[in-house]
Design a protein around this nucleic acid. Structure first.
Lengths: 338, 338
DNA sequence: GTGAAAGCGCTAACAC
DNA sequence: GTGTTAGCGCTTTCAC
């Protein structure tokens, strides 16, 4: 049967307290006693039971990460860097995948916050901040990642979307493009809103006319760009901006299928997943916007652990900056400020 | 402070047993009593503590999945389908990412099997079956996924690698290719071994000569194919087989960079991640092998829950079949038998 | 330098 | 139809 701490204590001829203190280094134990304890442990093959431990201490040493789409390389890479950071700190990672579905997110928040994890990292797909907030138990450690809400009630780690989009529009306009279409993600997401508004401002500032028909929305998941593209191509766009990696690769594929040549028949600006062979192949034909995913993941890991240790810590917000790289400037990865 | 089951009991004027039975539907409770209980629960905002519960029952309602590489689309998709299945059954998924590192796998097996999860799904990167087995506590529910060991001591879900590779070699030989190179993953993996041996047998059977220089090994991670390709191109291969999606996309990119035209200058057979735009673009220039990832993930979820419920269940092995699709037969996705 | 024992929140015999 | 209560395995206070 299961071997417990008292089996070890009995065998070593000491108390359970001593065994506990020995394995946790939590008070002085003479080295002879230690030896006896470790001896007994290895003889019995004892492993402390994690759930008893976390029940007793209230610490699960586990963080939950609620993601909209694991199979999106952006999030996959982020998960990877979060996991790397957390495991170095002795924490585990529980993944929940919402597929951009608000109910799934709701269910997962409830489930995970009910004593399963010490804290939650969330790239939320929710529309309403109020709804979201009502789901989080008071004082429960939460850090928003990539996507945030206007009401700044939670710590957050995001990527600045404004500057790279703004710059890319200016550059396209400078090249003489007049009709610049944009494919956004789900309209309710903060990232989408920021990107679209950067686009609108830049279009205005560059002296072009804002035409809402040039703004199309995908669903942030795979294979959602085609309809948007049909619309945009019908309107004879000179350029298209695809605002996430998944929709960007769909776009490249679609244009390819239509026989349109990038940078010649049509200009393309893409949010690009760094390290993905797909985009590397096109780096000399499209303007790329690369988000600092790994940095984001590591910072998210760091922040959530800070909050777990001190749930009353002041709200922390950080906005990382994306790199913008127009294709005819191959050697300068412009790090845009803010 | 934290509201517990006895707060609820007190407020509802019943015993904790009744509260417990009410929320778990585990014995008859009159509807008036139920009402009082639910009333108290919502008034107090009570949520049962998951760790107390799992400590008490011994069930964590959580499965661990040890993966070699989250950011590989093959595994990302698999995680997604495992998670979908498990969450439908009321289970959670803990992810551990080994980056094809044996020590990281070892650490994670230890950590997760020590009372954190009810069972473990493992796509192992280990070389030695003995080593692996020694890490698994006796009777602990484990299902091997994608990769297996010769000693059949665990249930496993794999994909048949032999037939599609064999067929693709035959087809290349039939087209007149003489020098067929192959890029395998890590040599220690069962999948790599199977694929290489299928290659060797087919080469022999087709009357070509087996040349070990034509067999190169990557590390199963991203950006590991370049060196292999240099070697292979130096030897003037007519065709190359890339045995996982990551190395396949590296290969396409690399050949592209070298200015070689697929299907013209060189034939290419690739393990391909279904649904990935990248490969869809090349589907008329390369022979594709598509593994049934989603099916694999769902089956893995099913099997591990079976084992969790009955750890003494007989060992289960299933080999799913990949689809092989030569590029000039665009409408027939050949489902290879075995 | 070590031990005794309380008790974390819940479930499930057992009792009536 | 419901209540009483032991106890899961561990950590930690208090005591010596």
């Amino acid at each position: 049967m299961k071997v417990t701490i008292s089996d070890v204590a009995k065998m070593a001829g000491v108390s359970t307290a001593t065994v506990s203190h020995t394995i946790n280094n939590t008070r002085y134990v003479s080295s002879e006693t230690k030896d006896k304890v470790y001896q007994a442990i290895s003889e019995l093959g004892y492993t402390p039971d994690a759930s008893a431990r976390s029940f007793r201490t209230g610490k699960k040493k586990t963080i939950g990460f609620i993601v909209p789409d694991i199979s999106n390389k952006f999030f996959a890479t982020m998960i990877e860097s979060v996991e790397t950071y957390l495991s170095q700190q002795g924490y585990h990672l529980i993944i929940a995948n919402t597929k951009e579905n608000e109910e799934r997110e709701e269910v997962n928040i409830r489930l995970l916050s009910a004593g399963l994890v010490d804290g939650l990292l969330i790239a939320s797909t929710m529309d309403s901040a109020e709804k979201f907030e009502s789901l989080i138990p008071a004082g429960f450690p939460v850090v928003l990642v990539d996507r945030t809400f206007d009401s700044k009630n939670f710590s957050s780690l995001c990527v600045s979307n404004f500057q790279p989009i703004y710059r890319s529009v200016c550059r396209l306009a400078g090249k003489g493009d007049h009709k610049i279409g944009i494919i956004g993600g789900l309209p309710r997401l903060s990232t989408t809103k920021e990107r679209i508004s950067a686009y609108q401002q830049a279009v205005t500032d560059c002296g072009l006319t804002v035409d809402d028909n040039l703004i199309r929305y995908g669903n942030s998941l795979e294979n959602s760009a085609a309809d948007c593209l049909d619309d945009l191509l019908d309107q004879h766009c000179d350029a298209i901006i695809a605002t996430n990696g998944l929709m960007a690769s769909d776009t490249i594929m679609y244009l390819h299928k239509k026989g349109l040549q990038l940078a010649k028949d049509i200009d393309l600006v893409c949010f690009v997943d760094f390290n993905s062979s797909f985009f590397q192949m096109y780096s000399n034909q499209i303007d790329s916007i690369v988000q600092p995913v790994e940095e984001l993941g590591a910072a998210a890991g760091e922040q959530i652990l800070k909050r777990v240790e001190d749930p009353e810590a002041p709200i922390f917000e950080k906005v990382l900056t994306s790199a913008y790289r127009p294709y005819n400037l191959p050697n300068s990865w412009n790090h845009s400020d803010r």
